[in-house]
Amino acid sequence: MKKSDFLIKSFLLISTVASILVTVLIILSVFSETMRFFSFVSPLEFFFGTQWSPQTAIRPDQAGSSGAFGAVPIFTGTVLITFVAMLVATPLGLLSAIYLSIYASPAFRNGFKPILEILAGVPTVIYGYFAVVAFSPLLRMLGETLDIPIASESALSAGIVMGIMITPFIMSLSEDVMSAVPKSLVYGSLAMGATPSETVWRVIVPAALPGIMGAVLLGISRGIGETMIVVMAAGLNANLTANPLEAVTTATVQIVTLLVGDHEFDSPKTLAAFALGFSLFFMTLLLNMAAQFIVKRYRERYV
């Protein structure tokens, strides 16, 4: 082998190994900090406790403020907001995908699909701004006229805006899987006299269901990990509730509030953020693996 070839090849190999190192680094660094956190606070308290007030004492001799680290209200808050988001994103994304791929004329499709994809490219901080400045006040006003008290940082407004962010993602993923359904099935159904909507519900969707499930799982994983929208539009206080009209907080919001500003590295307050981050990483990892597994199995069925 030529010397220059060897050099180039080793450079390529080193880069590849380095990119794996990233995952190892993430897991190791976040995991070790999490372990340190669990030396302060027991995992049982963290995963099953319902009290979250991480403000620890500033001076060591201060009394009665050791902080409580029960993360249940945070996880339920995350789930609540993500649930609202998926309630918006799944029907919107799926129906848009169906309309674009089956009913829309080519001109409509070419005109509107790129516009909808703009929504996917808008930075999330802009969604956050929109939620704070326009959407939450609008929702509150609507609530006032209907006599429903809606908190200004309600899970509903953060969830809906997040759902709009996830919609184009679900749309393009489910469009991909629906276009992978063999044309013979579709034409067969249409030839038997089924209307397009019957073909969609009885042939395309059942056939593409695993792929659509995968898309929804990926959407959920995005919602759980989304930060800026909830940091700006959701609440800061841990609140154990299932009512979307109240303010709840999420894991990402807590990570940001715990870590922004000056902090020392051995207080449980700082380390709690890493424990939350690790749970977040683990959850999204599981969701992604599940989604990829399902989609892969689905591809194999039709290839």
Binding site: S19, I26, V30, I224, T252
Partner: peptide
Amino acid sequence: LAAVPSII
């Protein structure tokens, strides 16, 4: 890695 939340 492509789907890990950016905050991580």
